[in-house]
Design a binder for these strands. Structure first.
Lengths: 214, 214
DNA sequence: GCGAGTATAATTGTATGCATATATCCATGA
DNA sequence: TCATGGATATATGCATACAATTATACTCGC
């Protein structure tokens, strides 16, 4: 019952993370290992593992009794964008310096796929390719440090944005900005890549600020 | 068996993290839960928890048999400093904008303590106060996001530096730079605080680069 | 009626056992 | 000799049992 499948702990983490960021477990509610274990029908062991990861990401906080749900505030979201502006700028620069031809081709392919989904107006898939594009940048930047630092931040803003979009009904489109970044990286121009990426994340921040009326 | 003290899992994580970053477990070596469990004299449960955290921080990587030690390369360390330059700059700025009088007093006290240890040439304590100073900045910046992002990065450079210092015999002293940062924060001057912090982390990067002969 | 002290319940920390998957090694046959 | 197949060893994933701590409720004495 082990390898091919994703571990229960991973599945449970994904589920709990989603449920917290989308409000299924409201901020302030208390979760205990035992109650989660009963709710999800598994033993405490994989639950513990998932909850520890939630703790590390500050989505929950230990309290005298179980853990209490924290999620993130709009203010936190804005700060995450400020950090992302700087660090993704560095990552894009590193990417322009280090990317291989194969990786570049992969990136181009993803952008074409995104274009396809934009024409079909499949917003779920658009958002997916969007995230994948950023994760590619993190991965192609030449050090796992970029991914480790940026992936959790990106993840949080994505889910926060998702909740805001659901409330407002608006959607966003940043395909052109992605293409600018790609072009700079393809040209192996670090300055241009950094600039394009910083501009892109800044725009994303502004869009969310409007959306969430911060 | 659940004393007031820190949990076994936490202790083991700290120890393994240190041992990896200082080379006790060389890069490429393989660790299994069972062998660690026997070496450290505890059951697999807390070991598992610690190893999962190491995986999340990319200090080890799962393999067919146990996990293999990754640690960080000098190149990674330099990248971490580049990220810290930017993000700690933001944190220092936020700190100057948000810090309370009590927090400011606490910070001043810490710097006086550090001065005391410097006169006594107690390098272990100096390093401790050093780390505490940075962590205070993260905590007083007004959002847990700063701490979550910066603490792991700071931790890694500290331990990496420790290994380098052990090899070279040199030590470093950055008290004056800390004091500059404090003065800017005390004056509630965000621009000056950001600048002082950036300069400080840049200097730390240069010192490590010399030390590690990168 | 109320406070103190104690019993009880609830919760997490740790150990252990079992199931399962994978690697390794050895034997056997062409 | 080499490939193949199976037995064995080793590893992790999950469940469960137990220990210990902390919160809560309750009782008893005043």
């Amino acid at each position: 019952m082990m390898h091919k499948t994703i571990s229960l702990a991973d599945q449970i983490f994904e589920r709990l993370e989603s449920d917290i960021l989308t409000g299924v477990y409201p901020i302030g509610s208390v979760l205990t290992e035992l109650s989660l274990s009963e709710d999800l029908g598994v033993s405490r062991t994989p639950i513990r593992e998932a909850v520890r990861r939630l703790e590390q990401e500050h989505l929950v906080e230990p309290s005298s009794k179980g853990v209490v749900v924290l999620s993130i505030t709009p203010h936190d979201a804005m700060i995450i964008y400020d950090i992302r502006i700087q660090v993704e700028g560095l990552a894009a620069r590193a990417c322009a310096e280090n990317i291989t031809d194969e990786q570049l081709a992969e990136m181009k392919e993803l952008l074409e796929l995104q274009e396809f989904y934009i024409k079909k107006a499949d917003s779920e898939k658009i958002k997916n390719t969007d995230s994948q594009f950023h994760q590619m940048i993190y991965q192609f930047a030449g050090s796992p440090v970029y991914y480790d630092t940026l992936a959790p931040l990106h993840n949080k803003t994505q889910k926060f944005r998702k909740a805001s979009v659901a409330r407002s009904g608006k959607a966003v489109n940043s395909h052109e900005e992605h293409h600018d970044i790609y072009k700079a990286i393809a040209a192996r121009d670090p300055d241009a890549a950094e600039l394009a990426m910083k501009r892109h994340v800044e725009e994303a921040k502004k869009r969310l600020a409007e959306l969430a009326e911060i």
